[in-house]
Amino acid sequence: MTNQGPRARASRVGQGSEHDHRSPLSIHDMTVAYDRKPVLWDVDLDVPAGQLVCIVGPNGAGKSTLLKACLDLVPKVSGDIRFWGKGISRQRGKVAYVPQRESVDWDFPVNALDVVAMGTYGKLGWFKPVGTKQRKAAREALDRVGLQDLMDRQISQLSGGQQQRVFLARALVQNPDLYLMDEPFASVDASTEQAILDVMRQLREAGRTVVCVHHDLQTVRESFDWVVMLNMRVVAAGPVEEIFTIENLKRTYGGRLTLLDQAAMALGRAHQAGERV
C-alpha cells in the first residue's frame, strides 16, 4: 500500500487502473486545473482504512483542491475517484466533509445546534423537517466536542475554535465512515486542538478513516498514522514513520519545481485567446 518515491511507484505499472475496494478513498490519475492551469498533476492515492491520514504541503500545493475534487465540488480534467470502489454519488452518506472555517458567513442567523443538525439533512432527504430525533443526535454530537452549554449561541458569538468544533460536530452527526477535513486545526486554541484530536482518536478506535489537510508539521508525527506529502503532485505517501523524513520534506517544501510552475503557466496561457505561444 505504501508508495515510496518514484521508483517504487513505477513498479505499480499495470495494476494502476484497478481500484482497491477496501480503500475508503482511492484516487487514480487525477489532474485538476483552474482556468486550464493545472494545480494537481496525476494524483494516485489509496487511502488505507481506519487510519488518521494527513495531507501536508506548502501553500498553493493543492491540498484543499484535492479534497474538493474528490467530492466533485470542483471540476476535474481527468481522473477517477472511488469510495470503497464506488463513485461518490452512491457513497455520499458515508462521507462527511468539514470545510474551512472561512468558507461561510458566520453572521448567518442560526445557532450552533442548527448548524450541527444540518449534518442530518442528507439522511432526512427532501422536504422532511428536522425532528426531535435529529435534534437529539445533534445535541449528542455537540456533547462529544464539549460544546453542550453553547448550543443556543448564535454562531458569530462563538470563538474560532468553537466554530471549528461546531463544524466537526456537524460531520459527527452524520456518523460516516470517512471524514474529509480541510484545515481543522487552522488558528484554533489549544483546548480545541486537543478536543479535535481526542475525537479523531475515538473515530480511529471505532474503525473510521479521517483524511485531514494539515499545516502544522510539528504535530504530524504524534497525531497521525499516515501522511500524504503533496506539492502539485504526490511527492510521497505512506505510514508516517517511513515517509515523514527530512529528505521527503525537503522534496515537498524545499526547491519549488519552477519548471513545473512555468509549464503550468504556459499551459494556462496557451488556452487564453490572444496570447501567441
Partner: peptide, 26 residues
C-alpha cells in the same frame, strides 16, 4: 519521472500536453 515523482506509466500523458508549450530555454 525523476523530479516530479510521477509513475513511469503516467509521464507519457502529461508530456503529451507539455511538449506543445515547451520552448528552447525550457
Amino acid at each position: 519521472w525523476q523530479h516530479a515523482d510521477l509513475a513511469a506509466d503516467h509521464v507519457h500523458g502529461q508530456a503529451m500536453r507539455l511538449e506543445h508549450v515547451t520552448d528552447r530555454s525550457m
